[in-house]
Write a protein that binds this DNA or RNA. Structure first.
Lengths: 146, 146
DNA sequence: TATAAGCTTAGAGCTGACTCCAAGGTCAAT
DNA sequence: ATTGACCTTGGAGTCAGCTCTAAGCTTATA
């Protein structure tokens, strides 16, 4: 039986966060002392670690709520229930990934196009490109957005 | 001279958002009618479009504030000032990109490992992998996390 | 002139995932 | 018995970037 600070240490999640998860229905302490102190069992620890792993994988707390309810009663759920949640997440991740990749490319082209020197920015090609809505090239090559 | 709704139409930003930007010091209407209605000049329109382009490129409103103050007085700023902001943003984007790519890979492996069928989730390999902290493989290949 | 559409403001609400605070109770060690 | 570390709770604050509301004025059209 672990106290909240011990669970915090074991999982790397703060006690604040653990209480927050409890408030949101993700992880309860199986036991409480007479004074109300939370005490966590091994099973609780595993549940918290499941939550942490799922968070690292990108699932929202709402997703994780669903995954947890599958986890406690696997017989009443299908693999498809699980893949549905996972696939939905993958789509979200891919969408964000595409946005970020586009930003990355733009930023790299902007940096390539600019001297970055200490002379004044009167003719800075980054400023020019942003002014032109990125529609023009970086002065030499016609690649931005296009 | 455009009214706010006209500027909204031209830029694709809502009137709400335009007022929000003004409140945060990014874009002022150069003129006001007697009744206080905002009127935007061509120069204002260009400024708003600059902001929009910078937003699309991933810059925060705070970054854009800096870029705008460079824009209005290019002589007092260097190309390096501009590349500093841009490079900082690129680093942030690359960091997020790495996180998302790791999530993407994990999600794809999870999906590969699971049948996704209508049978119950008792032996679902996604659930098993999340339970094991992704430290184990997808039943067949040893690739998750590793 | 009446109506509807559009404008103004300050300020509140939203999202998600924490993060912190105050006020007070508990526990272990000295 | 006292100190200090730890625990409890409800509720507020944080971040970014909007998004919306309410109450009231203005403007264009019929």
């Amino acid at each position: 039986m672990l106290k909240i600070s011990e669970l915090s240490e074991q999982t790397g999640l703060s006690a604040h966060t653990l209480r927050y998860y409890e408030k949101h229905g993700l992880v309860n302490a199986s036991n409480r002392s007479e004074a109300g102190y939370r005490f966590y069992t091994d099973s609780d620890v595993r549940r918290v670690q499941f939550v942490k792993t799922a968070r690292n994988t990108g699932f929202s707390l709402a997703d994780i709520g669903q995954l947890l309810s599958i986890r406690v009663d696997k017989r009443s759920h299908s693999c498809q229930d699980v893949t549905d949640i996972t696939r939905k997440k993958l789509v979200e991740v891919n969408t964000k990934l595409a946005e970020l990749q586009s930003m990355q490319q733009t930023l790299e082209l902007l940096l390539e196009s600019c001297c970055g020197g200490s002379e004044n920015a009167t003719h800075c090609s980054i400023m020019e490109a942003l002014d032109a809505g990125l529609s023009r090239e970086g002065k030499k090559e016609a690649r931005l957005i296009k």
